[in-house]
Design a binder for these strands. Structure first.
Lengths: 341, 341
DNA sequence: GCGCTCTACTAGCGCGCTCTAGTGCGAGTA
DNA sequence: TACTCGCACTAGAGCGCGCTAGTAGAGCGC
C-alpha cells in the first residue's frame, strides 16, 4: 500500500484479466458499438471484481473535453443552495458533470473560479458573482460562463436573472395599495440584483410622488444586515423618529434578520411594520409568520443557466444570451395595512 | 474557436515562446530548483501573456497524486457550511486542493462520493454521512475517508464527532437545575449523532428518576421537523395534554422550526416552554431571542478531519482514528425557569 | 474461387503534464 | 591541463485513457 493509498486498478488490469485488449475495455465503458454482448458482460464483471472505475483525469485528458460544468457559489447563501439543487439534475440530463467551488472567508471568487478552471471545467456557472464587468468579460473570453442572479452587461458572458424592476414594482404596489407611504428599503450593497432593486424602489417612490419619503439603508444580503437595520430603526424611534410603516428588505435572509430584531424589540409585524423579502428561498416559510416575498424561481433559473452554457459549448460561436425570469410576489403574513395614524 | 471553447495554451506554447524546453517550464511552475531567476521571470511573464495555466487533469495524471480532498456535504445544512468554511483553509495550509460534492434531492451519497473518487480525490471527508457502517467500511478500504459529525465504529474510516453524551448531559442538567421535569426530546432520526443524543437524553431522565416523563418525538435535522413537533405539541395542548416545560431539539435548524411554530401559536419561549438547540451554527444568534444550544466547534472539527486524512495519506498504513470534540453548552435566552404550577 | 460488407476486436498515437536521467558549461581545485 | 562539482537546462518515458486506423474472420453473392 503506497502513500497514495490503495493502488487504483486501470483499464489494462481489466483487459488483462478479461483476456481482451485495452481498447475493447474502453469501448465497453464508453458504451459504444464495437463489442459483443458476451464480452461486454465479462468485461463489466471483471471490472466490478477488481474494483475498477474510470479515471476522470485521464479520460478528460484524452478526450479533450471534460463535459464538466463548474459552479461557483457561496456556502452560506440559502438561495444558492436552491440553485445548486436545480443545477445537478439539469446538468446530468444534458450529460454533464458538476464541480462545486465555494467562496468563503479567505477564499475569494478568483480562487474559487481558478480552481474550477484548473479542473478543466468547460464552463463556469457563477452564482451571484461579485466581480466587476471587466473581470467577468475577461473570464468570458477565456471560457464559457454564465452569471446567475446578477445581470451583466458589456461582457462576453451569459446571464440569468430576475426582472428585478418587476419584482420590486409588484412588492411596492402591494405596499402602496395597502396604504403604506413611509416605505424604507434595505439595500443589498454589492449583492446581485441590488442596484436594480434600489433603482426600482426609487422609481416606484417617485411614481407615487413619495420622493420625500425615499430612504435607503445600507445593507447586504445577510441576516446581520437585517438585524442592524432593525436595531437602527428601533433606536431612531426611541429618539423620536417614527418607524417606517413598511420595509422592503434586500433579500429573505436580510428580512429574517430584520424580523428577529423587531421581535426582540417588541415591534409587531405586520401590526406596526410590514416587511417584504426577496427570493422566496426555503427560509420564507420558516418565519414566525409567513414572509411576504418576491419569488425567484430557482429551478427555472438553474435550468436556464445550464442550458445557456451547454448550448454555447455545443454550438460554436454562439453569442452570449440573457434570460430574464419573471418574478412573482408571494403575499403571506408579514404585510398588512399600516396602523391608522 | 472549437466546440470546447477557446483553445487552452499548454506548456509547450509557453516553452516555445520563451525559448526554453517544456521541462524547464514545468520546473518553474512547480517552483522547484533548477532554473535561473532570470529564466523564471521570463517564463512566468510569457505564461501570463498567453494566459497559460497548468492543467490539473494532466498534472495529476502525471504526478500520480492529486493532492485533492473530496468533501461530501448537504447543500442546505448550515452546519455543513460552517464545516466547509473550516476545511478550505486547513486543506490549503497542508497543501491540498478541495473538491465539493453535494447530496441533494435526486443525488444520493453514493453518487456524490463516486463523483469525488472519479475526480481522483485521495481522500473523502464525509459531512454527516447517512450510510451504514458496512458501506463506510467498504469505502474506507477503497480510499482514505473520515466521517464528520457521525461516529462510526467497526469501519476502516476515521471519525470526528462531538461527545454527544456530554453535550446532552450539560443541556439536561441545565434544564433540570432550572426546575424542569417534563422535558421532551425531538429526535434527529437517522441524522448524525442522533442515536447518541437520544440515548444520552434517556440516560439523563433516568438519572433524575424521570423515566415516566421520558418522551421522544420522531424528527429530523430540518426546520420542518421542528415545525411539525411544535404543531403536534400545540395540538395536544388543545386536547388537554399540557405542554412540556422544556424541549431538547435535534439541532439548531429543528429548534428554529420549533420556535417558529411556537411563535405562530402564541406559545411563549422561555415563559411557557424552554428550548435547547444543538450545533451553535450561525443560525443561533438570529433567533428572535438568542438560542440556548450545545456548541460544536466547526472549525476545530474541520481541522481535525483534514488532519486525519492528510496524516493517513502521508504516513503509510496508519490506523483509523477517532476524535471526540468537547461540546459546550451556550446558555442564551430560550431557557428559563418553568412556569410555577 | 473472388471481392465485398459487416462485426468484433487490436495497435498505437497523443492528450498535457511530471519526473528521472541525463548533457553542457563555467568555476574551482590540484 | 585535467579533473571534479554544481548549476541551468533538456530529452524522453510514461501517467490512464480516447480514438483513429487497421486486421481477422464470418457471411454472402456471383
Amino acid at each position: 500500500m503506497s502513500a497514495t493509498g490503495k493502488q487504483r486498478p486501470t483499464m489494462a488490469d481489466v483487459a488483462a484479466r478479461a483476456g481482451v485488449s485495452r481498447a475493447l475495455v474502453s469501448i465497453v465503458f464508453r458504451n459504444q458499438p464495437g463489442a459483443g454482448q458476451e464480452t461486454r458482460d465479462r468485461v463489466l464483471r471483471v471490472a466490478e471484481e477488481i474494483g475498477y472505475r474510470p479515471d476522470n483525469a485521464a479520460r478528460l485528458l484524452a478526450r479533450g473535453r471534460s463535459r464538466t460544468l463548474g459552479v461557483m457559489f457561496t456556502v452560506h447563501h440559502t438561495f444558492h443552495a436552491d440553485l445548486v439543487e436545480g443545477i445537478y439534475p439539469e446538468a446530468e440530463r444534458r450529460g454533464y458533470d458538476v464541480l462545486l467551488s465555494a467562496t468563503a472567508p479567505g477564499r475569494d471568487e478568483i480562487q474559487a473560479v481558478e480552481a474550477l478552471l484548473a479542473h478543466r471545467c468547460e464552463a463556469v456557472i457563477l452564482l451571484g458573482p461579485d466581480a466587476g464587468a471587466a473581470r467577468l468579460d475577461e473570464l468570458g473570453r477565456r471560457t464559457v460562463a454564465v452569471s446567475v442572479g446578477r445581470r451583466v452587461r458589456d461582457a462576453r458572458i451569459d446571464s440569468v436573472h430576475t426582472a428585478e424592476n418587476k419584482g420590486v414594482r409588484q412588492a411596492m404596489d402591494h405596499l402602496f395599495d395597502l396604504g403604506h407611504r413611509r416605505i424604507v428599503h434595505i439595500d443589498g450593497g454589492r449583492g446581485p440584483g441590488s442596484a436594480e432593486r434600489r433603482r426600482a424602489y426609487g422609481a416606484a417612490m417617485r411614481r407615487y410622488g413619495l420622493q420625500a419619503e425615499t430612504r435607503v439603508l445600507a445593507g447586504s444580503h445577510t441576516e446581520e444586515s437585517g438585524i442592524e437595520a432593525g436595531r437602527l430603526l428601533v433606536a431612531e424611534r426611541e429618539r423620536g423618529t417614527p418607524l417606517p410603516t413598511a420595509v422592503l428588505a434586500a433579500n429573505d435572509r436580510c428580512a429574517l434578520g430584520l424580523l428577529m430584531a423587531f421581535a426582540r424589540a417588541g415591534v409587531e409585524v405586520p401590526g406596526e411594520v410590514s416587511v417584504v423579502g426577496y427570493d422566496d428561498s426555503h427560509l420564507s416559510h420558516l418565519m414566525p409568520v409567513g414572509l411576504t416575498t418576491v419569488r425567484q424561481d430557482a429551478v427555472l433559473m438553474a435550468e436556464r443557466a445550464v442550458g445557456f452554457v451547454v448550448d454555447r459549448l455545443d454550438e460554436e460561436n454562439r453569442e452570449p444570451r440573457e434570460a430574464v425570469i419573471e418574478p412573482k410576489l408571494v403575499v403571506r403574513d408579514t404585510t398588512g395595512r399600516p396602523a391608522p395614524g
